[in-house]
Design a binder for these strands. Structure first.
Lengths: 196, 196
DNA sequence: AAAAAATGGCTGAATACTCATTCAGTTTTC
DNA sequence: GAAAACTGAATGAGTATTCAGCCATTTTTT
């Protein structure tokens, strides 16, 4: 076996290069150099440049989904589950700055310009939030008037925009825990059923 | 007058072309054709391709800021002001789909890859929200514990992510008013001072 | 056990483009 | 008849992808 998991090596290199240069400015030769591999080798593992990006999304978001689902398994209070999701999301984006940049910068474009690609994993990630909302509504803890489909977008949007703040220019004024707490507090006040 | 405001014509054409193809896939010749102008003419009004994008951001966001500030002038209750901001934002994104797509897709990249460009107008737009929050906190209507800098990001992120939903695939299940109302409700519950 | 043959992962220079930008020339304006 | 505005073909830089061959390893032959 000559290959020391070149596939993974190339994905990791691509994360670094895309985060530095953006997808369009990244050259295949840059990724190859970063992965310590020849340009041509990349085409043994991926069909083309887009395919690297799509594989990267699916694989990395897949890992994140597994992580957060594992954390949520241990909890059954939907209020705590939302807090866990928020904190995990921000922590993860902070721990993996380079991946965070790629997701924030390139994921949006991808839906539009890679027509066939449906971002299936990303939808699955968002649906974790609407799942929590539905669970909370079923048990009467959350208001039934809140639309889970609107809530999941708003909640994710708030987290995403907040984490972009640090990724672009880390701001020591707010800690991750503080931001995650504030966002969770705001959304929880907005969704909690009024005391009977 | 041979020029029937070519500058504006080119910007408008660029909005359409960028929204269809994205900045990187858009050719100068596509924009020229759309604006019914020769390729070279574009370089009489803009320095280069990036400059079209940046001018587009500054000018269009500038118009949006004027609009929303005009609406907010008439109101002095910070609660209503937040509702107005949310509704106006979503309405505007819905009315001007093509512009919305360009802002959503390209604005993020721009910060990173046009180093010198600081997105000044965008910051000004966000600061309208933190301004409202500070005003509400000063008058005791809003909790002082909420950080305006976190709140503005979260609020804008929620609106932005929500509007992307329709821009990509219009969903007849939620109206603009309903979504704007839900988001405002959530954030207002999160920021209102508890009744004394 | 040595030599020969086959395998296939890997390489990187060459190809085959695609556009952003320029500028010499044309048309319009005053 | 200058000056200004405009045109669009030509230029040339930049790069995704290909592919003919290399070589470490494994398999077959002697």
């Amino acid at each position: 076996m000559r290959t020391a998991d070149k596939h993974a090596k190339i994905i990791e290199a691509a994360i670094r290069v895309f985060s530095r240069q953006g997808f369009f400015h990244a050259r295949i030769s840059d990724i190859a150099k970063e992965a310590q591999v020849a340009d041509g080798t990349i085409y043994l593992y991926f069909n083309n440049k887009y395919d690297i990006l799509i594989s990267l999304f699916e694989e990395e978001i897949g890992k994140i989904i597994l992580e957060v689902k594992l954390l949520l398994e241990k909890e059954d209070d939907p209020r705590q589950m939302l807090r866990i999701f928020a904190l995990h999301h921000l922590k993860m984006m902070d721990d993996r700055r380079e991946l965070a940049e790629v997701l924030q910068m390139e994921l949006r474009q991808s839906n539009k310009f890679m027509r066939e690609y449906r971002n299936t994993k990303f939808v699955e990630y968002l649906d974790i939030v609407s799942g929590i909302v539905k669970q909370g509504q079923a048990s009467g803890i959350f208001r039934a008037t809140v639309l889970p489909g609107v809530f999941k977008r708003a909640f994710f949007g708030a987290l995403d925009e907040t984490s972009r703040l640090w990724v672009l220019l880390p701001d020591p004024r707010y800690t991750i825990e503080e931001s995650a707490g504030q966002i969770s507090d705001i959304f929880l006040s907005g969704i909690l059923a009024p005391p009977a």
